[in-house]
Simulated assay, not measured.
Amino acid sequence: MRPSVVLRCLLASALLSLALPSFAAAASAKPGKAAAAQAPDRRIALTVDDLPWVQLPAVTTESIIDDHRRLIAAIRKAGVPLTGFVNEGKLEDQGALQPARLAMLRDWLDAGADLGNHSYSHADLHTVGLAAYEHDILRGERQLRPLLQARGQTPHWFRHPYLRAGRSAEDKAALARFLEQHGYRIAPVTVDNADWIWAAAYLRAGEPHPGSRYRGKPHTEGIKTRLRRDYIKYMGRKLDYYERQSQALLGYNLPQIWLIHANALNADTYGELIAMARKRGYRFIGLDEAMRDPAYQRADAYTGPAGPSWLHRWAIGEKKPAGFFAGEPEVPEWVLNLARLDSE
């Protein structure tokens, strides 16, 4: 080989050796970028029903005020957007407004929450009929509207109690017109769950219960610790399930809307719920932002007796087969047993 040829080969070899790390870096970067591009859009809006407290008015304000304060403290600490839905009937005791309960709603506002209308009495549309239901909605803003107006706000979200939204297309359309006339939008739920069953079990944790391995009075704190731990796992499985459902139905993960309730269990696990969702890659957003996703313009075709996730309502409207709905996490039998329930 002539010297000039050798020199050119050596130079080419040197240039190639310099270029290889760049090629390798580019090659290794591409899969990561592709994976990032394909990662689900994990945004979620948190909503809390049955304010100021689930058990009101059946219990005294004094009996739940410490739990309420604990939940408000957790909300402040977490600092994520939140919309709470009010049942004004819970503000009263035998028809008389309780100032301490109205103050509980101010605590939510002071903690940064938005407040929406959940009707006065938590009425069931399928039971009371449309006319009575509409009356109950208006009765549910007598305190809420001036409370918000004092802060330069107006109530603009409505959530159906029991998530029962109408037994006919005609009732749904009539209710939609009524809500629009009064400045309300329906707040759907995509991450539906049975936190209320876990909460009932949590309240009963100190009681003997059928089928328990315990004899006599159970060890309350031990059961509560287990309930909190398993509840967080259950909620995580719910988030995963509805993410898969959204991908399967829509082709992407829409901004989810998560429902929980104002109860003692969530007071004691609120921070852990937020941390669990964040660990899964979720970013918390307001309900207004979530509802800007075009999926929420889809019609709710469901007219059955239950109150399923809007993802399932849309799937029912598309006549998805039964297998589409399979695999939803269920409440464990031991929790149902402790809550004194036979099924969800």
Results as ranks from 00 to 15, higher is better:
residue 66 D to Q: 14
residue 48 V to C: 15
residue 32 G to Y: 07
residue 58 A to W: 09
residue 58 A to K: 12
residue 60 T to D: 15
residue 17 S to G: 13
residue 62 E to W: 01
residue 34 A to W: 07
residue 17 S to Q: 12
residue 41 D to A: 14
residue 19 A to Y: 03
residue 64 I to K: 02
residue 62 E to V: 08
residue 18 L to W: 05
residue 44 I to M: 10
residue 27 A to N: 01
residue 22 S to I: 02
residue 50 D to R: 10
residue 62 E to P: 01
residue 49 D to E: 13
residue 50 D to K: 08
residue 56 L to D: 03
residue 27 A to H: 04
residue 37 A to V: 02
residue 51 L to A: 11
residue 49 D to Q: 02
residue 17 S to C: 12
residue 33 K to T: 01
residue 34 A to D: 11
residue 45 A to V: 04
residue 34 A to L: 15
residue 35 A to I: 06
residue 61 T to N: 10
residue 65 I to L: 15
residue 32 G to C: 11
residue 61 T to K: 04
residue 41 D to L: 12
residue 43 R to W: 06
residue 61 T to H: 13
residue 15 L to S: 08
residue 57 P to A: 09
residue 40 P to F: 07
residue 26 A to R: 11
residue 48 V to G: 05
residue 37 A to K: 12
residue 19 A to R: 08
residue 49 D to A: 09
residue 19 A to L: 15
residue 61 T to R: 10
residue 23 F to Q: 08
residue 58 A to E: 11
residue 32 G to R: 11
residue 40 P to W: 06
residue 22 S to T: 06
residue 41 D to G: 09
residue 45 A to F: 13
residue 58 A to L: 14
residue 53 W to S: 05
residue 38 Q to K: 14
residue 57 P to E: 13
residue 44 I to Q: 08
residue 53 W to T: 01
residue 24 A to D: 07
residue 23 F to W: 12
residue 59 V to W: 09
residue 56 L to G: 00
residue 35 A to K: 04
residue 50 D to E: 09
residue 22 S to V: 13
residue 44 I to F: 08
residue 15 L to G: 12
residue 57 P to C: 13
residue 29 A to Q: 06
residue 33 K to W: 08
residue 31 P to L: 03
residue 28 S to I: 07
residue 27 A to L: 15
residue 32 G to W: 07
residue 54 V to L: 15
residue 35 A to T: 00
residue 58 A to P: 00
residue 56 L to Y: 07
residue 59 V to A: 06
residue 39 A to F: 00
residue 36 A to I: 00
residue 29 A to T: 01
